[in-house]
Design a protein around this nucleic acid. Structure first.
Length: 277
DNA sequence: ACGAGAACCTGTTTGC
DNA sequence: TGCAAACAGGTTCTCG
């Protein structure tokens, strides 16, 4: 669920409660996320000060004063909730609460993930960790332009939708924003990615950046599980052009098409077949 | 080498 | 009404 804009929104919500704070208490309520927690998880984390909360693609990375880093991924259904007063939140813990972090300022940060596709682990060098090492270009750091995208996609036979979802190329785009970016760029999701170069590549690079920035601006998209750490909703879902809008008319000026849904690589793709080529 | 599909897990919605 | 199937924002492994 959480794609780059949602993870960035979570990062912004958590940062004021974590950066500069010490983790006074760390509780593992259950140990079965996608990959096992390291055996020293609680011990290594307890007492550490969080120097900075960063993000790499869809991963959150908390840099610790111990020199290590806490790597977190929300999977499909992971979410954080912040309770400003640890005492006030009391016992009300749910069946899918996995981790509780209490800071020296008294904030209680609870990680909940009912599908358990998320993960948390520790690394001595986050960038070199196997989970992050092979990630591709960070789409909003200024390096994503048409030339770069064209070079990455060159020679690939797979669909441009699949290429956008390939985290080794551009990191952070998921199913929703891939659909939305392709619509904005007027490119058919099924088009062979190797044919996206020149003007088409420029449009797609721009569309990816635009849609991610707009979504961050809106606090992400709230569909099912996702919520901001303060419990609020994102509202970019109201700005979707195609995602989840099967059967509705295409909103592009001068286009009389209708939004359809197809399945690519087992995932839903929404598009207007009339104006996406 | 590369791409499609299944698997991982639970909850909710849809359809018969 | 009830039950089963389909579907959900991600990643990784297997198989062809």
């Amino acid at each position: 669920m959480p794609e780059l804009p949602e993870v960035e929104t979570v990062r912004r919500g958590l940062a004021p409660h974590l950066e500069g704070r010490r983790l006074a208490r760390v509780e593992l309520r259950r140990g079965d996320l996608r990959i096992p927690f390291p055996p020293d998880f609680v011990q290594s984390l307890t007492g550490c000060r969080v120097a900075r909360l960063g993000r790499r693609a869809k991963y959150l990375v908390a840099e610790l004063d111990s020199g290590r880093a806490l790597i977190m991924h929300l999977g499909m259904s992971g979410r954080f909730a912040v309770h400003e007063s640890a005492a006030a939140s009391g016992t009300g813990s749910g069946a899918h609460d996995h981790v509780v972090l209490e800071t020296d300022a008294g904030a209680r940060i609870v990680y909940t993930d009912h599908r358990r596709f998320g993960l948390m682990t520790l690394a001595d060098d986050a960038a070199a960790h196997p989970l992050l090492r092979r990630l591709g270009l960070e789409p909003l750091d200024g390096a994503l332009d048409g030339m770069t995208l064209g070079r990455m996609f060159a020679g690939r036979r797979t669909s441009v939708k699949a290429a956008l979802l390939d985290q080794r190329l551009i990191a952070g785009v998921g199913n929703i924003y891939a659909c939305e970016a392709l619509y904005r760029a007027r490119l058919s999701p099924g088009r062979e990615s190797g044919t996206v170069r020149g003007e088409r590549a420029a449009r797609l690079a721009q569309a990816v950046r635009d849609v991610l920035l707009a979504a961050i601006e809106a606090g992400g998209s709230t569909l099912r599980d996702y919520a901001q750490p303060d419990g609020g909703s994102g509202y970019f879902q109201h700005a979707f052009s195609v995602y989840g809008r099967e059967g509705e008319p295409c909103g592009r000026r001068g286009c009389n098409g209708k939004i359809s849904r197809i399945v690519q690589a087992g995932r839903s793709t929404f598009l207007c077949t009339a104006c996406q080529r």
